[in-house]
């Protein structure tokens, strides 16, 4: 049996353990809620974890499309990026998969091929961590962009409307080459 076959066979159990391990990163009250409430609108975080960890697991076992991997990571990391975690804690959920898989492999016996495949899988998880880091940074940068935009929008609208700043006029007609209205042709 290949590692892929083994993991696909045990997929549900692995996913359940992984989800549990991820939820362990929350305090008991939150963990209980994220796990118990099944309504996806009453519990969007728990629902996203449950759905997307499954998709992630599938992509890690049988990689099909990097975009699908990225989309699943995005759903989870976008949440973790605004929760009470240090960046390392926020992304640690991917590493939690390794010991779970390793245990499954160990239980299946000391097959050398399995061990070798395990290393390849481990590398894929590392790859997913790097992809997750990209997503994490995009999310955090977005937060700062939003902050900056908020300040900019507030002030610029007021200044413009109060007539305190003079902006370069638009020159729609001047976009045609050679137009004398175009600033580059004005000299």
């Amino acid at each position: 049996m290949t590692l892929e076959e083994l993991l696909l066979q045990k997929r549900d159990a692995i996913k359940a353990r992984w989800l549990q391990a991820v939820l362990e990163s929350y305090p008991p009250d939150s963990r209980r809620f994220f796990k118990k409430q099944k309504d996806q609108f009453a519990n969007p975080v728990g629902h996203a974890f449950s759905t997307e960890l499954e998709n992630l697991l599938q992509e890690i076992i049988e990689p099909s499309d990097p975009e699908r991997l990225r989309a699943s990571l995005d759903r989870i990391v976008r949440i973790r990026a605004v929760q009470e975690f240090a960046p390392s804690q926020g992304l640690s959920f991917l590493f939690l998969l390794k010991p779970i898989v390793r245990e499954v492999v160990t239980d299946a016996g000391r097959d050398e091929d399995l061990q070798r495949e395990m290393e390849a899988l481990s590398t894929r998880i590392d790859g997913a961590v790097l992809a997750a880091l990209d997503v994490y940074m995009t999310c955090r940068e977005k937060l700062y962009i939003l902050r900056a935009d908020q300040m900019k929008n507030q002030v610029s609208a007021l200044l413009r409307r109060a007539g305190l700043i003079s902006e370069v006029p638009s020159w729609d007609a001047a976009s045609e080459e050679g137009s004398e209205n175009h600033p580059l042709n004005s000299t």
Binding site: D29, S30, F33, A42, N43, P44, V45, V82, Q83, E84
Partner: peptide
């Protein structure tokens, strides 16, 4: 009320219950 606050639902900080 515990699981009805958007800050708790989205953030998971129990003091937002």
């Amino acid at each position: 009320c515990a699981d009805k606050c958007h800050f708790f639902i989205g953030g998971g900080d129990p003091k937002n219950m």
